[in-house]
Write a protein that binds this DNA or RNA. Structure first.
Lengths: 261, 261
DNA sequence: GCCGTTCTTTGATTCAGGGCAAAGAACGCT
DNA sequence: AGCGTTCTTTGCCCTGAATCAAAGAACGGC
């Protein structure tokens, strides 16, 4: 008796939009199945806390849609965003009871969640998965160091320009066939001025002033509070003080991020 | 014929002072031997560049003595120290040709070096070693995020106070039997004012002014430009704006660092 | 010891960016 | 559509920290 052709059961993961960019794509199918088995999709509204700063982190996962902010808050209320997570990015701190950072929904979000201990067991059994996580955390550390340069050595206008360029880079699918001259450059800033300020180490007022000024000087164009056009890319790069952020220039920050929150 | 009792050959590693605190201690003896085989002790004078920012990173290793600074430099010369490596800390970027940060000797240093590819081969063969590296990088990321809070949200006096407390924490062997009241608190700052400024995101002049002011107010005592006494720990903690830096309070930053340079 | 170099401190001045207050826009909600 | 709430912009003032300049201290070499 002949064996029937294998029937492929579609799991939720097979329809996952971020899969090919996330850690799931980097491991063998058999492992993907195991990940799939312990995963659970959850949604949160903008403003909700996914993981609190002091609390035990019981789960972690991958952003499917929306934006997460990873932040630390001081006793007197000052807060610093230490990471912004876009779809396909990983959040949560493995191998530590608590991480000392909070993870919050900056917009409505859909997350693919794992119970932390289950995921850690998987990591322990699978060096391949752990290797991929290791690579992701290394990239995240590179990005964190890059941000330290921004916070420690750059002026506010430079930070804003850098932010636009990095955001553009991370959200744009590179289309090399289209001549960059003709391409209409636009950036969508998916967060509020308040979050921008907390990310760039400044205040909402200053953010606003800098943006208006860049617009007045014809470097950018304000379509709406969150949508901008880049009118003069070269000048924007010059404003950022960092040649390496020039569009087309590859860099480490392109890779998905990893929040250890 | 009876087997002779095993003869233990002492390798350089057996005399290594930082071994018990470094990654070597966290893996099995058989692996330690393998690490030992590919290691080579090298020394550099203060000011030397171990790894340049743009160059290929051909080796990596562990600090045995002295201090390394991990830094990024902007086109116009501004530079930010993104990590300070003390004995037992790991430096170098695995799985990447170049890391975009420079590693320099802040003092005369002794390093236990590995050729990068040889070390990576070892990592690939040994999930245990990779796991330990993974943990170390996770801790380093925690520390980087902590520093982002410092650079993005704290005033300069707060940064200086935090720096003293963190340094004290990292260089003091905790002696719980000795009553903390009576313990003479002292900090040795192993780097120049210039490096402090580059680490804290400010200038030498401001660093100097803040230190002199803290001394005038009786919070610290200046024994020499690099040696200080902590006269009023409580007030120093209050200056830092961060209760969690209070001496005796455990935190993630206590662990050895990992420079991905 | 003396002397040049580098590191640190101090003073005077300037200015980028923060804080406060209020007006204006955008976004629900019913 | 009308209205309250939240988000963003703008103006004014002020302060923390950078900059410039120069004096002191510490260090290394001979």
């Amino acid at each position: 008796m002949k064996a029937l052709p294998p029937v492929r059961i579609l799991s939720a993961c097979d329809r996952c939009e971020v899969r090919r960019k996330s850690i799931c794509n980097a491991v063998k199918p058999v492992l993907q199945k195991e990940i799939s088995r312990i995963s659970r999709v959850r949604t949160f509204e903008a403003g909700n806390t996914i993981l609190a700063e002091a609390e035990d982190s019981v789960f972690l996962g991958i952003v499917m849609s929306g934006i997460l902010r990873v932040q630390r808050t001081m006793a007197d209320g000052r807060q610093q965003i230490v990471g912004l997570l876009l779809p396909a990015d990983f959040f949560g701190r493995v191998f530590e009871r608590t991480s000392g950072v909070a993870v919050e929904a900056a917009t409505d979000v859909t997350l693919c969640c794992f119970e932390r201990h289950a995921f850690e067991r998987l990591l322990s059994r699978s060096p391949e998965l752990e290797h991929q996580m290791f690579l992701a955390v290394l990239r995240e550390l590179d990005a964190a160091r890059d941000w330290m340069l921004l916070l420690g050595s750059q002026t506010i206008p430079e930070r804003v320009a850098s932010f636009f360029l990095i955001l553009h880079r991370r959200t744009t699918v590179i289309e090399p066939d289209m001549p960059s001259r003709k391409r209409r450059l636009s950036v969508h800033v998916p967060i509020s001025r308040h979050d921008m300020a907390a990310y760039l180490g400044t205040t909402v007022e200053t953010i606003s002033r800098v943006i208006q000024d860049m617009s007045r000087r014809g470097i950018i164009e304000i379509h709406s509070p969150q949508h901008f056009g880049i009118l003069d890319e070269k000048r924007l790069v010059r404003c950022s003080g960092r040649e390496e952020l020039s569009i087309g220039h590859r860099c480490l920050a392109d890779e998905p991020h990893m929040a250890v929150g």
